[in-house]
Computed example of a mutant assay.
Amino acid sequence: MDLNYSEADNAFRQEVRSWLEANLPAEIREKVLNHRRPSRDDLVLWHKTLAKKGWSAPHWPVDFGGTGWNATQRHIWDEENARVGAPGVLPFGVAMVAPVIMKYGNAEQKSYYLPRILDCTDWWCQGYSEPGSGSDLASVKTRAELTADGKHYIVNGQKTWTTLGQHADMIFCLVRTDPEAKKQEGISFLLIDMKTPGITVRPIIMLDEDHEVNEVFFDNVKVPVENRVGEENRGWTYAKYLLGHERTGIARVGASKRELGFLKRVARQQEKNGKPLLEDPVFAGKVAALEIELMALEITVLRVVSSEAAGKGPGPEASMLKIKGTEIQQMLTELMVEAAGPYAMPFDPAYLECEQAHTVTGYDDAAPLAAYYFNYRKTSIYGGSNEIQKNIISQMILGL
């Protein structure tokens, strides 16, 4: 693989950089760069701004409204978004359910849902995890039973850890349509309107006091059969395809490179023995080791993305990206808290929610770090826990 950027690549980077800097609202950028919480309106505004430019779905084929960018250009796009502090487009619609609809959906589903995903007419959430069915996703118990006339499914059950489900217009769900089949069989993939009677969303408030995830309950929810993607009882195949795309994105190399810069800034501000902490041999060694791991991850991401550009879907290599990417993200937050020391301890929700311009401690860089650290404990669990990813690697790559 040639890792040197061509003149055309560098010109593309400059085009992207100039547009992002001119069009990303300063308020949104400030929130992202300083680990504060963008609102729903912020995320929708940015998605629609990208859609007007034609850049909301860089990975989509041109026929569906994508950019036609090659693998290198998409990598540059991700890097520049992270560098400038763009919040990115939420993955549930553009990067997760859309590829499933493109590959397995029928013509009517493609023509209706894909344009609405592209311009953020619909905000999507993911209905996979259930109480007792998280990493063991094949054990989902939410039932979908056909009505006597065969025109609708009646859905009953519960989903949990539904990210931003309180804002969602649509949810894509794994449901069990054949309770007698083996775990990986008898599952179907449904697209459900969140305004359908019988759906209840209850918040789960996280340790950092953020309403990020939810429980979603289905009580005799009536879903048209036309909302099933693909064949009945073949949903596990579609779920695995979606998870491959999710795990590739979880690596978040561009964001980790940005956060590495933030870590170094904090470490320069703090002192140890009269010198910047970043000059302390022990702490500097930790930062250097992390940076080397991040460089190695970036090369691996480029290899996987190049394979996708050649027409190969993300395979078990996506599990490698998920493991290493989330480990790096967690280590970054750990070193940030270590660098800030006691300044990271105060918890100031009003500052995080942008209700006041500065934190009560006077040290804005340190104010979000404890909440950031605790929130990122989840990354090694969501998208399939890292332990499960290691099993996938051992089976599919090593043949164990």
Rank of each mutant, 00 (worst) to 15 (best):
210 D>T: 14
213 V>H: 13
213 V>M: 13
214 N>M: 04
214 N>G: 04
216 V>P: 03
217 F>V: 06
219 D>N: 15
219 D>S: 15
220 N>V: 00
223 V>L: 03
224 P>F: 05
224 P>E: 05
226 E>G: 12
226 E>F: 07
227 N>R: 08
228 R>P: 00
228 R>T: 01
230 G>S: 12
233 N>E: 11
234 R>P: 00
235 G>H: 10
235 G>I: 10
235 G>A: 08
240 K>W: 03
240 K>A: 02
243 L>N: 11
251 A>T: 05
251 A>N: 06
252 R>M: 12
254 G>T: 03
254 G>H: 05
263 L>M: 08
264 K>V: 02
265 R>E: 11
265 R>K: 15
266 V>E: 10
266 V>S: 08
267 A>K: 11
270 Q>G: 00
271 E>W: 00
271 E>Q: 13
273 N>Y: 10
274 G>Y: 12
277 L>F: 03
277 L>G: 01
277 L>S: 01
278 L>N: 09
280 D>M: 05
283 F>Y: 15
283 F>V: 09
283 F>C: 09
284 A>K: 15
285 G>D: 10
286 K>Y: 11
286 K>F: 07
288 A>V: 09
291 E>D: 14
294 L>Y: 00
295 M>Y: 07
296 A>F: 06
297 L>T: 08
298 E>Y: 08
301 V>F: 07
302 L>G: 04
302 L>N: 09
302 L>K: 14
303 R>H: 12
304 V>H: 11
306 S>K: 15
308 E>C: 04
308 E>V: 05
310 A>H: 09
310 A>I: 00
312 K>E: 13
312 K>F: 08
316 P>K: 05
316 P>R: 04
317 E>W: 09
321 L>T: 08
322 K>P: 00
323 I>Y: 05
324 K>R: 12
325 G>Q: 01
326 T>E: 01
327 E>R: 11
327 E>G: 02
328 I>N: 02
328 I>Y: 03
329 Q>F: 01
335 L>W: 10
337 V>A: 13
338 E>H: 04
341 G>Q: 02
341 G>P: 02
346 P>M: 03
347 F>R: 14
347 F>Y: 15
